[in-house]
Design a binder for these strands. Structure first.
Length: 632
RNA sequence: GCCGGUGUGGCUCAGGGGUAGAGCAGCGCACUCGUAAUGCGCAGGCCAACAGUUCAAAUCUGUUCACCGGCUCCA
């Protein structure tokens, strides 16, 4: 007799084996949403035959686990449809991912986005027919025979470290797969194929490029609709579109990856820099500036020639080789070394807004997010080994303030360890890594480890901000460096009167100012908070002729106060001028007509609150002073 | 760099072997207007570049460049 339990419920079967679905039913757990079940914590198909007792739970399609199974099964459904439409297609891998699934396929000829509806229609046909999904366990050699004409599955099977593998079949399609899956295709209704792209087999660019089809599936039609809407909203926030609409920056064929900033984009960037400088002065930093182009020998000495050459640009001056800087550290070191330094000078925090150039492959360029030249809000901090923890903690504090309090981002922290291509000894790396770990743990900062992703000269703590679409962007980083100081004979005189080698911290907060702006544009959807808005106040005269003098008088006052204002000088109707100011996302619109001109007031309209009525200029300034503003 | 797609006036896009079109923006004129689009008119493009096929190319072919979606890489 087999005994099954779910919580305090129990059922018995007077047989040697039983189908899992029957157990689920007997325990009263079955309903239309159930697509799989857990037996002793292992997720399994409902059709699985069980020959021992144990704990059983139903997996519903609206649970995270169920959704993952649904999407995985949808990938199989798609594969079956593709096989019908494109016989002879071979299949790579087709997992479920965050927000959906993909399948990498090797198809004769090409599939384009225009073919997706056709594939989707075939999928609906199969789903409508309720194609059964069945599982079979095969010994490895049987499986190899079964998939003999499929090079991808053969490669996968060979690497599996188990005597048997499972194969899922639905109609003419069969796939090597761990499962579990929905019992039949009729469980799959709410799906959509999204896009098509190339992807290397097993993610290795040395391998063949397969065709990847992305899609998604949800438990309910509403959730699918919601998701599609979210993608469309994300498109509206695209910083490349908003950057054009709000006249912030542009990109040109003449300089791919080298963004051009327009006056309004510079207003934002300069405000960010203003904020950055104030914050750094408060925290004991001083600022330097080092050249764009430096002798190649410097880059050989720093190790960049050996480890970073492929990303660098080179040039020649008077027949001598030079390099365009991809990082600011060697320049900073030259500044440090201009004097003999004492332990009393440390920590020495040399900040630099350095414009660096890095060669990026053409296919990766993306608006402001991925460019070939950008400004790092860098600092190189020279400390004694004893100061590591305190200094790293202080930087983490700065990051937290900037990310959450000023900009309202969520972020996560990663510790990246030694990469393959790196310099230094194991002991140095171990010491550096444990110093960073210590700083993270003593501040109770949750973090994950990203093995092998450190810089070539040291491990790092990375800060990942989450944007409106849930994408994460690496911004801040804190890198511990035991290499450069030694390479450049950087020293300080200790209390003991002897020469010592300082530890160097490389760190950025914004990361790249250009990219940070891109993230902010998407984060705010162009509606920058008052302190950052490129145009803070739009003055809207009701009548272009008779109210212009007053409008100009107001603007002069705002200019004096250092506020960014514009007058709409067009001979248009008021409604039109308001609409355009709204579309430009200007925080405050000041309507001025006869009434205001006479009473020396302004009609205030706030972009999200609407008309606030007339008030004196003093009252309006008072209103502005209540706005969040970290540079006051 | 790789795979696929795209490239037409400032912007968004239609057209597609017979010599280029719309809406918005711009300019002009009229209206002088109170919180999300006033009307009429004018002007603006060697259809990404270069080669080729053709009597004829924006349209077909090839190459290059840029952009878009991914992959790999990355701040």
């Amino acid at each position: 007799m087999l005994v099954f339990k779910h919580g305090d419920k129990e059922c018995n079967f007077d047989s040697d084996s039983v189908i899992l679905h029957d157990v689920v039913k007997a325990l009263g757990l079955d309903n239309k949403k159930v697509i799989a079940a857990k037996f002793n914590d292992d997720a399994m198909d409902l059709s699985r035959v069980i020959s021992e007792g144990g704990n059983v739970e139903a997996i519903s399609v609206d649970s995270p686990e169920g959704l993952e199974i649904l999407r995985h099964s949808t990938a199989h459904l798609m594969a079956q449809a593709v096989l019908r439409l494109y016989p002879g297609t071979h299949f790579g891998v087709g997992p479920s991912i965050k927000d959906g699934f993909y399948y990498d396929i090797d198809v004769a000829g090409t599939i384009t986005e225009a073919d997706l509806p056709k594939i989707e229609a075939e999928m609906r046909k199969i789903s409508g027919a309720g194609e059964k999904v069945t599982r079979e366990d095969l010994a490895k050699d049987e499986a190899l025979k079964f998939f003999a004409d499929d090079p991808y599955k053969t490669e996968l099977i060979t690497e599996i470290d188990a005597p048997t593998v499972s194969v899922y079949k639905q109609g003419e399609y069969a796939d090597l797969c761990r499962g579990p899956h929905v019992p039949d295709a009729s469980k799959i209704h709410n799906f959509k194929l999204l896009s098509i792209a190339g992807a290397y087999w097993r993610g290795d660019e040395k391998n063949k490029m397969l065709t990847r089809i992305y899609g998604t599936a949800f438990a309910t039609p509403d959730e699918l609709k919601e998701y599609v809407k979210r993608i469309e909203e994300a498109k509206l926030r695209d910083h490349r579109k908003i950057g054009k609409d709000l006249d912030l920056f542009s990109l040109h064929e003449e300089g791919p990856g080298f963004p051009f900033f327009h006056p309004k984009g510079m207003a934002i960037m300069n405000t960010l820099i203003d904020f950055w400088r104030r914050e750094h002065v408060k925290r004991g930093y001083t600022e330097i500036k080092t050249p764009q182009i430096l002798d190649r020998s410097l880059w050989i000495r720093s190790g960049h020639w050996d480890h970073y050459r492929d990303n660098m640009y080179f040039t020649e001056i008077d027949e001598k080789p030079y390099a365009i800087k991809p990082m600011n550290c060697p320049g900073s070191i030259l500044v440090y070394k201009t004097q003999l330094r004492s332990y009393r000078d440390l920590p020495m925090r040399l900040a630099e807004l350095g414009l660096v150039h890095r060669h990026e492959r053409s296919g990766v360029l993306h608006g402001l997010m991925r460019v070939r030249c950008f400004t790092q809000d860098d600092s190189h901090t020279y400390i004694t080994p004893e100061q590591i923890k305190e200094e790293v903690t202080a930087i983490m504090e700065l990051d937290k303030y900037v990310y959450t309090e000023v900009f309202g981002f969520k972020y996560s922290v990663e510790l990246s360890t030694r990469p393959e291509d790196s310099m230094g000894t194991d002991e140095q790396w171990e010491a550096a890594e444990s110093a960073l770990r210590d700083a993270l743990e003593s501040t109770n900062t949750p973090y994950t480890i990203n093995p092998g992703d450190g810089a070539f000269y040291g491990p790092k703590i990375d800060f990942h901000l989450e944007d409106c679409i849930g994408r994460t962007w690496q911004c801040g980083t804190i890198q511990l460096d035991f290499q450069m100081p030694g390479r450049f004979d950087v020293t300080y005189i200790g209390e003991d009167g002897a020469e010592h080698t300082p530890v160097m911290i490389h760190r950025v907060v914004f990361g790249s100012i250009e990219r940070f702006m891109g993230i902010l544009i998407e984060h705010y959807a162009g509606a920058f908070p008052y302190w950052l808005a490129p145009v803070q106040i739009k003055i809207v005269p009701i009548n272009a002729a008779s109210h212009m003098d007053y409008a100009k008088e107001l603007q002069a006052k705002f200019m004096n106060l250092g506020l960014r204002s514009e007058i709409d000088t067009r001979d248009e109707k008021l409604g039109r001028k308001i609409r355009d100011a709204q579309l430009q996302k200007v925080p405050y619109m000041l309507v001025v007509g006869d009434k205001e001109k006479e009473a020396h007031t302004v009609g205030v309209r706030e972009r999200s609150k609407g008309d606030l009525g007339s008030m004196s200029l003093e009252e309006f300034k008072d209103l502005l002073s209540k706005e969040f503003n970290p540079i006051h």
